[in-house]
Amino acid sequence: VLKKILGNFEFRCIVGVLACFAFLQYGQIRVENVILHQGETAEKTSLPISRKMMQGEIFRVSFIISNPLNLRYDLNIIPDDCAESLTINGADIPLSDYSGRCNYSKGFVLADSVTAPHRVGPRTTYELTLKNGGGPGGINVFPKGTGFTDALEIVIAILVGLALASLCKRRKWHSFLLFCIVFGVFLRFAMFSALPYTQFANDVEGHLAYIQYIADNLAIPAADECWTCYHPPVYYTVAAPSLVVSGLLGFASSAGVQLFSLALSILVLICGLTLLKKLVDGKSLIVAAALWTVWPTLLLVAPRIGNDQMFIALHVLCLLSGFNYIRYRKGSSLVFAVVCAALAIWTKSTGFISLALVILMAVAGYL
């Protein structure tokens, strides 16, 4: 039995993924010791910082970036609202050339070549002075490793794609569909690693605060407890463990929630292809599968944080099992479809579409 397991292709891929992940986890570039100085007070906190502040208030934020393997990295700094000055290990870095130093959505990027001359050893202290232009003030920082970490991420993406394609191959999938899976998984990983969660996002800090509330209190907040708490709770509850786990592993807490979105978008890819395979064949299947694999909305959800992606996943599952019910008249498929529709409604109110669909399918299948 052991020989059979060790010789299994998917098993080898999973071992490869875990090995790469262990390297990433050990060598990852972390932001530590975040301290917010407001006037005379200094407070230890964590990123992202977003506080109520007076208009025009000047505040300082210091943090340490630990880089155990001394990898090259770029630093994306997103100030809210303006970064006035920056020191790296005490050395002043002029910011006047950075057009994004007042851009609170994308921020600016300090290239490795700028910071490298001032970095000594694995830990580097950064200190920024910022000015709040109005509304809440704060900062977020994303170190982005280049070279070695990119290579590891690419290997992980390919191994995950190959493992999933190999599972589908056992079910006698067409080679073009297998290619769609490998390519689609790769594209989703690329979106996940290239885009910060703030891109293409609505109220994303609110969604994170909602998930954090559930992780902290182990309870669902009242609708007026936070500014996105009026949303139904299923997505936020299911995403809470991923937030806790990524925190425990020392990654940014948002990374785990993004990874959950990535997993959902891969699930959507595979379930969608399964459904298309049942509906059409020949050239139509090739066109449909290619469109499904590269459809922009379905790609964009991979790095995002929000309840849309879970709604999409549940809707596709609902559609697939409802279709199975009509085709094979298996009641258990309909039970599954109803459960998915119920979860979809309590994920996002758009889920009413899934409910209507299930009713139609229940009637159609029965008659």
């Binding site: 298996k330 009641g331 258990s332 309909l334 039970v335 479809a337 109803v338 459960v339 529709a341 119920a342 409604i345 409910l355 299930v358 009713i359 229940a362 029965y366």
Partner: peptide, 22 residues
Amino acid sequence: APSKTEIISWVLLLLVFVGLAF
């Protein structure tokens, strides 16, 4: 005649509506 699992799914569907009403 409907199968047992079909009846279960109809009951669940009804429960969803009851849940929504609340």
